[in-house]
Nucleic acid binder design. Structure first.
Lengths: 160, 160
DNA sequence: AATAAGTAGTTGCATGTGCAATTATTCCAT
DNA sequence: ATGGAATAATTGCACATGCAACTACTTATT
């Protein structure tokens, strides 16, 4: 009897049409919007979206610094991918690596003043992109439902 | 007077905290879910997610065929990117190119029986991934709001 | 009809990103 | 204390993907 219950609980029920449609819109909309907004940033002579994502995590972190692995998690990038992205940002002077005296394996990425400037320059363009492509189409209620749903989804990434 | 009105209408208002939070969750959740589901497909010996996306457009098209440029639009990929993706799928036998007698510049991508089989094999894995990572966290109402919102967003990609 | 402009698809090149292996360091069990 | 497992970051390699240039063909203009 218990075996049966377990089987039913772990059985994979397929998404219905409604949810499947939501999923497909999710994928397509994401690709379309990222593409559009990134182009707008680059066209305006600002840093690209992925650079922005990294720098904004730093500006929000205490002391404007994060360990590289924390940064990799936050921007959903592999360690190696992050290493090279940080290389570029460091070469551009937007952040610098600082060795960590408490753990000599690792480094902090620390936002520089130039990095802060780059964020300040890009923000109006990015904000306009988010507003015009995305936010303008969502009522407050919809944005609330949207956020709540995505938060639930993110919280259980390994749930099977 | 009219000049003033135009300026106000085209002014870029920034997204509020609620909408900004929704946007950031949108980006992070997308990256996380695509990563998880693609791994599950590959681990199960199925075609990767991007291949699936292409083939599913074909299976839904009339005669199981689409012009390459139509396919590029549907999967939000550049022309050159699509050319090479179609190369791989054709080499794997999952689709074939067919010249179009009505316009000799272009080709159709046509789903093969093997392509159909690959879809059938991958679907249970993909469906389970969508269900477990995504759909299970959305009530019907939430899914409805979600879809409606994304549809609005997608309809106006160039609205500024 | 002839020519120019536009479109479909492909290719060279540059860039971005993940995996597996590597190095340096830290943590843990004894 | 010491050796083995785990972790942080980097690097070599392979692969994916966009842009610009190109070829082949179609459409529009005259």
């Amino acid at each position: 009897m218990q075996l049966l219950i377990v089987r039913i609980e772990s059985m994979n029920i397929k998404p219905d049409e409604l949810h499947l449609n939501a999923w497909r819109l999710f994928i397509t909309t994401h690709a379309t919007l990222i593409d559009a907004i990134d182009r707008e940033l680059v066209a305006a002579g600002c840093i690209p979206l992925h650079w922005y994502d990294v720098l904004v995590e730093l500006v929000e972190a205490s002391d404007h610094r994060l360990r590289l692995y924390e940064l990799a998690d936050k921007v959903v990038l592999s360690r190696s991918g992050l290493t090279r992205l940080v290389d570029k940002l460091e070469n551009a002077g937007l952040l610098k690596r600082e060795p960590n005296p408490e753990d000599r394996r690792g480094y902090y990425a620390v936002l520089t003043e130039a990095g802060h400037d780059a964020l300040r320059k890009a923000w109006p363009i990015y904000a306009a992109g988010i507003q015009n492509h995305f936010a303008v189409n969502l009522t407050n209620t919809e944005a609330q439902v949207f956020s709540t749903a995505l938060q639930k989804i993110l919280k259980l990434p390994d749930d099977v």
